[in-house]
């Protein structure tokens, strides 16, 4: 018997090639789908953003005009500002479900029941929840009704049409809607942490709050990063559902976000080229933000 491995035979090479073809066969449908619905439309948007685009008609090439117009546009400035304000939701988006998960983990009886209760909003779409809250928060809606019933008339507000209130309300709703999924994800992550770490911290003198920051978050930091990314994606790219259903960007442009504004310019005003340019700006901004986050994360580690 020889110790030398047998040289690759033509038969080996053939079976290896067959395996590669098989692997590609499995990959192809997914690749085709993502090219068709993500990459191709994005590429088309980038190209169309360089045209004064009128779908169905001949469009004129305008170079970077759409971008320069956009950057000088007062509404766009307002929308970007709104988007930045909505990012205030991020810390709450992370800390609230984490704190709740920690409470459930540590001391609440029947934690499964509470997890189910918190998870409920996650099974409804933002559009459905938006319609629900549009009626709850309307001027003569149930919320103001309850406030008046219990004698707190002074606290009643026009929640969705007051320019000072509308963004905080949307922030609260986005945080609330993500709460359930966050609690479930963090609960699962915490259940993998050695219980004695918390007990050691408790005996060492860490308060509940300190345990959250010095034990819970560092122990499950990878999940926290993931949830932070998902939060950024939700705020940047999925606030459309909330804004469209709740306020249509109003009052004025007080609650318009970039993704909503893309829709408004394209289908509200027919400025398809500008809308495409705005979508590209949103995409690039998001890629830059995620890139910075990755650098910061590596630096922290």
């Amino acid at each position: 018997m020889s110790d030398v491995a047998p040289a690759p035979t033509p038969a080996h090479a053939r079976s290896r090639r067959a395996a590669t073809i098989l692997e590609l066969g499995f990959l192809l449908p997914v690749l085709a789908l993502s090219v068709a619905v993500v990459i191709l439309p994005a590429a088309i948007s980038i190209v169309r953003s360089l045209y004064d685009w009128h779908p169905g008609y001949e469009s004129q090439y305008v170079g970077l005009d759409n971008y320069t117009t956009l950057l000088d546009d007062k509404v766009f400035h307002q929308v970007v500002k709104n988007q930045a304000v909505l990012l205030i939701a991020l810390p709450f988006w992370v800390v609230l479900p984490l704190a709740l998960a920690l409470l459930l983990y540590k001391q609440v009886p029947a934690p499964g029941l509470f997890r189910t209760i918190f998870f409920l909003p996650a099974v409804m779409s933002s559009a459905v929840l938006g319609i629900l809250f549009r009626s709850i928060l309307s001027v003569d809606g149930p919320l103001n009704g309850i406030l008046r019933t219990i004698g707190l008339d002074s606290l009643t507000r026009s929640w969705l049409s007051d320019p000072a209130l509308v963004k905080p309300v949307i922030i609260a709703l986005i945080v609330w809607a993500g709460l359930g999924t966050g609690v479930v994800i963090f609960s699962a992550a915490l259940s993998g942490v050695d219980h004695e770490l918390f007990e050691a911290a408790e005996v060492d003198g860490a308060s509940w709050w300190q345990q959250l920051w010095t034990v819970a978050i560092p122990s499950i930091r990878h999940v926290v990063y993931l949830w932070l990314y998902l939060g950024a994606v939700t705020i940047f790219l999925f606030s459309f559902g909330w804004v469209y259903v709740l306020t249509r960007g109003g009052p004025g442009y007080a609650s318009a976000t970039v993704d909503f504004d893309v829709y408004r310019r394209a289908f509200g005003r027919g400025e398809f080229g500008m809308a495409a340019a705005e979508a590209v700006v949103l995409l690039v901004t998001f890629i830059v933000v995620v890139g910075i986050a990755r650098v910061v994360r590596r630096w922290l580690a």
Partner: peptide
């Protein structure tokens, strides 16, 4: 603690 409960990070 028996597991020492050192903070791994």
């Amino acid at each position: 603690f028996q597991s020492y409960a050192l903070y791994p990070y």
